[in-house]
């Protein structure tokens, strides 16, 4: 009986695969795909289209903007503010990732050990990542406050600073403060994604190494690090993508200021479109923002595809 059923399903799935592409199967996925086309494909094309028209506050509703070719791209690329925003984004991403990843990795090593309360403590850390970034942004704005902020108090009382700093008002420190806040948000994310990689390393490898007289430092250097490479690489690429597009946290903390000291690319795009209503240039800048992201995304997809084949 069981066998008969098995062959029945097997035959069925074979006919499915080879002959019948039943049209009603597609009804299951049609709504989702239609939605994706409407809310993702359409916006991308609309961005591309807007980026070659002079769409501004006068022309965007009436749909009568004149075609301007690559003028918007040229304007944006030659804009010193764009170049600065790009540079700030690179610094913001590199600075955030370096520490998010290292601290996340160290915490993953800690939580990879078994000790009482491990699960609960690990989950508690995720709270920082789950909070809406407007909330964490407001809290860090307050903690970095120059007048009564707790960070000034802490640094002064341990003797690292003699005078209070106005972190978010001074151009030299505003970016640093947003990076620190973003590290706080990203640490649990890195930790929780690196942990399964550590857990998948067979214990027997470490046991064999310790029998051969390897120190724990050597085990880490010659077992953990090389075996973590693929996972670490995909976490880093994902981190690049997620950090390069951070808008909320920085905007809430500084609005991109003082002046333009923290105007990272997404804020620059936002300002072009929603503060200056230069939608054409905003769209061109958005496409330019997509380029480095696409590179990272292609790398990430390629990597996860390869892992899937290997697994």
């Amino acid at each position: 009986m069981r066998r008969a059923m098995f062959t029945a399903t097997k035959v069925r799935s074979l006919t499915h695969r080879r002959v019948l592409h039943r049209w009603d199967d597609y009804l299951f996925i049609a709504p989702a795909m239609l939605f994706i086309v409407l809310t993702m494909i359409y916006p991308i094309f609309s961005n591309l289209r807007m980026s070659v028209y002079d769409v501004n506050v006068a022309t965007f509703l009436s749909n009568t903007a004149p075609f301007v070719g690559f003028d918007n791209y040229l304007k944006v690329l030659q804009d010193p503010a764009f170049q600065k925003a790009f540079l700030l984004s690179v610094i913001f991403t590199a600075g955030s990732l370096a520490f998010q990843f290292t601290i996340g990795f160290a915490l993953a090593l800690l939580f990879n050990r078994s000790f009482p309360g491990n699960q609960v403590l690990r989950a508690l850390m995720l709270l920082g990542w789950m909070l809406p970034s407007v909330v964490s942004g407001s809290v860090f704005r307050w903690m970095f406050d120059g007048g009564n902020g707790v960070i000034n108090y802490a640094l002064q009382s341990i003797g690292l600073m003699t005078f209070p700093r106005f972190w978010l008002i001074e151009p030299q420190t505003a970016l640093l403060a947003t990076i620190i806040a973003n590290i706080w948000v990203g640490v649990p994310f890195n930790m929780i994604l690196l942990l399964p990689g550590l857990q998948s390393i067979p214990r027997s490898l470490y046991e064999a190494a310790s029998i051969d007289g390897a120190s724990s430092g050597q085990s880490f250097r010659y077992i953990t690090l090389p075996l973590m490479r693929p996972v670490a690489l995909s976490v880093l690429l994902l981190g690049i993508i997620y950090t390069f597009k951070v808008f909320d946290l920085v905007y809430v903390m500084t609005r991109g200021g003082p002046v333009d000291a923290t105007t990272v690319l997404p804020i620059y795009v936002y300002q072009l479109s929603f503060s200056f209503f230069r939608f054409g240039e905003g769209a061109a800048a958005a496409i330019l923002l997509l380029l480095p992201l696409s590179l990272a995304a292609i790398g990430y997809l390629w990597l996860s595809q390869r892992e899937e084949v290997m697994a």
């Binding site: 916006p43 991308i44 609309s46 961005n47 808008f247 997404p266 936002y270 479109s273 939608f279 997809l301």
Partner: peptide
């Protein structure tokens, strides 16, 4: 397509949706 959508910055979608 789904994977790529997840990686898009919200600002890229926000302007066209606003229009």
């Amino acid at each position: 397509l789904l994977l790529i959508t997840q990686l898009l910055p919200a600002i890229v979608i926000a302007t066209p949706l606003f229009v």
